[in-house]
């Protein structure tokens, strides 16, 4: 799993280059996110456009990443595939995370606090 870090003025985008965030890579995902956001400030957008499948371990890892980032660096999600969206809705995590249709929408001026 690779995570590409893209620094924008209004946010840091983490582009997850993996078809799955599941039990097999959950720990690796947490470590990669931690490394990716070790520098910088402000919002973090998790670009999930490449991620087709997220299981409960993957969801737990995303929650852990949000907790680790803390209040100063809110973690937001973008570009959910249908399966990922479904898991978010079933678990009500869609009401916890700020979710954007696309990364472009996440970076749009109206979404920048």
């Amino acid at each position: 799993m690779e995570i590409i870090v893209k620094a924008f003025e209004s946010a840091t985008v983490l582009d997850v280059q993996a078809p799955r965030i599941d039990a097999a890579v959950a720990i690796q995902f947490k470590d990669k996110v931690r490394a990716a956001v070790s520098e910088g400030t402000g919002r973090v957008i998790l670009d999930l456009s490449q991620v087709e499948f997220l299981d409960s371990s993957g969801l737990g890892a995303v929650v852990a990443a949000m907790k680790q980032l803390g209040k100063e660096r809110p973690l937001e999600l973008a570009a959910l595939s249908p399966k990922v969206d479904k898991v978010m809705k079933l678990t009500c995590m869609d009401r916890v995370f700020t979710i954007h249709e696309t990364v472009a929408a996440a970076l749009a001026p109206e979404n920048v606090a």
Partner: peptide, 21 residues
């Protein structure tokens, strides 16, 4: 379903979703 709505970020559960699903 683990309670997640209205929970402070630092208190959110990281597990328990699997058996719910």
């Amino acid at each position: 379903r683990p309670e997640v709505v209205g929970i402070a970020v630092e208190d959110l559960p990281e597990g328990g979703f699997g058996w719910f699903l």
